[in-house]
Design a protein around this nucleic acid. Structure first.
Length: 440
DNA sequence: TTATGCTAAAGCGG
DNA sequence: CCGCTTTAGCATAA
């Protein structure tokens, strides 16, 4: 399971974290009104001046254009707004990298079962689809294991029992094994959390470790940065890296990328490991007919998602200098932003709290799998592509059916209420029909 | 393990 | 709109 999704669904705080982004008050602007914006005297913030340049560029372009591409212009202006500031990125990433380096060094030195721990950067920041601010970083900390037995699982993609398999020699995780060789997720997670806490305590940063949230596998650090006073969050997610094992059977009918990235690429990716993330911590977490689910696990394909987004074109040269530029990532960014803005506008009613960016990402993956040809995502067709993606999303919502891209039996909307799905679908339709006033 | 070269994206100026 | 520079992240070789 993707930890971005996990963290989002399982952590109300992260899901609803309101971005203090300023929005222009005037909802719908006509093109001619833009000229009056040129008076902006705000110093320092470069976004303003680029806005101005871009708008005047749009105006000159307008005069030469006969077709009505109002929507295209709105969307391109929005994409510009979503770009993350380079200085902030540099600052934030150096914090994250330094902290992560030191946490890993500490774990390797002081925690016996972490000697082989590996870092895996995942999530939207490292997929180049992070929007607005570089304020959320996902880092998986993975322990290599050769094979596992997945003994029980449910349609929501959770496992209730993971056992180490065919380990003749001693394995560093042996100390977490029950008599039946199943692994105690909660014990591992709890030791991991304590070790991270110790590692972080002596670092020369303003770091707060967030309280353990139920059902959330991440150890979250809030790091306040000296340079600009902003706070970023770093999620460390413990995982088992299962190599030398093929993907579980229930992934068989998912991951349909043959007509998009090709059979060969699919085979390559299927040879990669998969990851298991401990789902619960603590006792008394009863679910599913009273079974104590404290040792539940969730499968993660974050690494594959990242690679898919990197090699996102049918043509090998998609978006390279020699190739054609596509708008797949831009469409995803726009969909994420739309969802984020709608959630923010409606934060008090809580109707949208169960929707998160992983729903947007999954919708894009299905859309790319269905429309694999690069012509269907030409950058010049951004507006049409985005409209179609929204149609897809609305359809998923109306049917209350959005299968996990890797696990078709896992419906990501199965616990969303019909009324909230309709509410979101309606809100999206309103935005579509009015050229997205929420983006202004 | 470290050095090196490549890529994607931001930002700037024409 | 285009080309150029810079940077973080990554793959690969040494």
């Amino acid at each position: 399971m993707n930890e971005a999704y996990t963290a989002c669904v399982f952590s109300a705080q992260r899901c609803s974290s309101p971005k203090p982004r300023r929005r222009h008050e005037s909802a719908i602007k006509t093109d001619s009104s833009d000229a009056s914006d040129a008076q902006d005297a705000s110093p320092a913030v470069s976004a303003h001046s680029t806005d101005r340049q871009k708008k005047s560029a749009e105006q000159t372009a307008m005069r030469g254009l006969r077709v009505d591409d109002t929507l295209g212009k709105v969307l391109k202006a929005t994409i510009d707004k979503l770009k993350i500031n380079k200085n902030e990125q540099s600052n934030a990433s150096s914090h994250v990298n330094d902290i992560t380096d030191k946490v890993i060094a500490h774990l390797k030195r002081n925690t016996t079962w972490c000697e082989e721990i590996e870092r895996l950067r995942t999530g939207s920041y490292y997929e180049n689809v992070k929007i607005c601010e570089p304020d959320e970083f996902d880092v998986m900390m993975t322990i290599p294991v050769e094979r596992v037995d997945i003994q029980e699982f449910d349609e929501a993609g959770a496992f209730y029992s993971i056992a180490l398999k065919r380990h003749t020699k001693r394995h560093p995780l042996d100390r977490f094994l029950n008599e039946d060789k199943t692994i105690q997720a909660s014990e591992m997670l709890s030791e991991f959390r304590d070790a991270v806490k110790k590692a972080v305590e002596k670092l020369p940063y303003q770091i707060e470790m967030q309280r353990k949230k139920p059902k959330c596998p991440a150890v979250t650090l809030k790091v306040k940065m000296e340079e600009n006073g902003k706070t970023i969050s770093v999620d460390f997610v413990l995982g088992l890296k299962v190599h030398r094992a093929s993907w579980p059977d229930f992934t068989k009918d998912g991951f349909k990328i043959e007509n998009w990235l090709g059979k060969k690429e699919k085979a390559n990716m299927k040879h990669q490991p998969f990851y298991l993330v401990p789902k619960y911590e603590g006792k008394g977490n009863t679910e599913h007919d009273g079974v104590v689910a404290k040792d539940a696990w969730r499968i993660s394909f974050s690494h594959v998602e990242k690679e898919i987004l990197k090699k996102h074109g049918h043509s090998k040269t998609c978006c390279e200098d020699v190739g054609q530029k596509c708008c797949r990532k831009e469409c995803l960014k726009l969909l994420k932003y739309l969802l984020q803005q709608l959630k923010e506008d409606d934060s008090k009613s809580n109707k949208l709290s169960s929707f998160c960016s992983y729903h947007a990402k999954t919708t894009l993956l299905h859309a790319c799998a269905t429309r694999g040809n690069d012509n269907e995502w030409a950058y010049s067709q951004l507006a049409d592509c985005f409209q179609q993606l929204l149609e897809d999303f609305v359809k998923h919502l109306r049917n209350r059916h959005l299968p996990n891209f890797f696990i078709p039996s896992h419906n990501l909307l199965h616990q969303a209420s019909p009324s909230s799905c309709d509410f979101l679908a309606n809100a999206i339709e309103i935005q579509r029909n009015n050229n997205f006033p929420i983006f202004n």
